[in-house]
Structures are given as C-alpha cells and as structure tokens.
C-alpha cells in the first residue's frame, strides 16, 4: 500500500524533516506514528499527500511512484486519501452536511445518491441531528467527527489522521479512536500520528516511532514507549 525507499526531506537551510526513512505499510493495517514534536510525523504525512516533495528517495502509494506523479494529478491522488487534521480543517462557510458533501462534489458527484451517502455517514458518526449546523456551532469532538465523515465518505483505501485527538479531552478522544478503528475494520488502511500515549498503549497496533527524522522503532502490537 505504502512504501518509503530511503526518503530524506530537509527544510532549508538545514532542518531535518525525515532522514533515510524506509518502511512498508500493508493494505488494511492500522499504524500509529509516534514521537515528540518535530520528530517528522507531520513531514511523513505531508509527503504522503504530496504537499511536500522529498529531497531524496522514493515514495509509493498504492503502487504509484509519487515522484513521477504530475502536478495536475495531485487532486486525484488526494481523493483516494482521506485526511483528518488536528485543527479539523472544515469550511466555516458550509454546514456540516455541505462540508461532507463537498468531498463528493469535487469528484463530480452531486447526485441524490451522494446526498444519501452523506446522510448515512453523518448518522454513522452520530451527527445525524446536526447536519444543518455550521462548524463553529459544534464542539471540538463533533467537528472532528465531521472531518472524519468527510475523509471517509469516498471510502478511500487510505485514511491519514494527524493528531486527530490533539485538541480533544480523553473521553472524546476514545470516541474518535473507536471511529477510526471501525473504519480500519472495513479494510481501509489507517495511519495515525499521535502524542496520546495511553491510547497507543491500549490499542496494541503497529507503532512506528520517529525521532529527529529517523525511524527508531517499528513494532507490531507495540506501545507508545520502549518495552
């Protein structure tokens, strides 16, 4: 599903984002990406959606080499990768319903069936009763569920979450985690960058630990710290 071959990213003048990272993530895996701030988690994610270009090495997503992907094809790549961010990134001018629908509209789908899909997924994340609200009328946890709904409404093969629980209280975080876990169970590969030690320890999934841009640990069924 995802392959990094000796990937290095350096931010000018000499800040290391990632250094010689090689790894392989299979289809359907659930992967935690852990490490302190500045360890390269966000760089990893931004490279995956081709928001950044590596300085060295090659990245494959779904068998496709991102380095040879033309600029105008980037939107089509991103439609196959659902993204969830710490700051939700919802469009403030659109209702909850329209925010999720937008992800379908960009693919040219604006039919009755896509509207039905939006309704279904919002019910699934427990926001069926708030479809007509605007993002700023929702709590942080609710906004994050909207953004997960938006990321998943296309049923992308890959879902990336960058600190999705970073702004949320522990109880709300558990709800978000369960949602991501259920999404993973439908066969979608999930990569989640996080600081949340407790969560990682409880889930017992694959953990990739980064430090100063390097992979220092890659462990099946791991915990947050060394063990």
């Amino acid at each position: 599903m995802i392959k990094f071959e000796d990937v290095t990213k350096i931010y000018p003048p000499d800040t290391i984002g990632l250094e010689s990272v090689s790894l392989h993530i299979e289809k359907g895996e659930f992967v935690f990406l852990v490490g302190p701030s500045g360890s390269g988690k966000s760089t990893f994610i931004r490279l995956l959606i081709k928001e950044l270009e590596p300085d060295r090495g090659r990245i494959f997503v779904g068998g496709r080499d991102l380095g040879s992907l033309r600029r105008w094809k980037i939107p089509y790549l991103r439609r196959n990768i659902g993204c969830v961010f710490q700051d939700f990134k919802l469009l403030p001018s659109k209702t909850v319903f329209d925010n999720v629908l937008y992800a379908l509209q960009v693919t040219g789908n604006d039919s009755g069936s896509s509207r039905r899909k939006v309704g279904e997924i919002l019910n699934l994340v427990g926001l069926g009763h708030k479809m007509g609200n605007y993002p700023d009328e929702l709590s942080g946890g609710e906004q994050q569920r909207v953004s997960i709904a938006r990321a998943f409404v296309n049923h992308p093969p890959l879902l990336i979450a960058d600190e999705p629980t970073g702004n949320l209280d522990p109880d709300t975080s558990v709800g978000i985690m369960q949602l991501l876990y259920r999404i993973n169970k439908t066969g979608t590969t999930v990569i989640m960058a996080t600081h949340d030690r407790e969560m990682v320890d409880r889930m017992r999934q694959r953990v990739i630990a980064l430090e100063q841009g390097q992979v220092v640990r890659d462990q099946r069924r791991g915990g947050y710290g060394e063990d």
């Binding site: 959606i49 939107p75 937008y102 992800a103």
Partner: peptide
C-alpha cells in the same frame, strides 16, 4: 487550502 486537501482540482 482545505479545498485542495480534499482533492479539488484548481
């Protein structure tokens, strides 16, 4: 920026 991240073409 958000529109681009969701996969909207220019």
């Amino acid at each position: 920026e958000i529109m681009k991240l969701v996969g909207a073409t220019n």
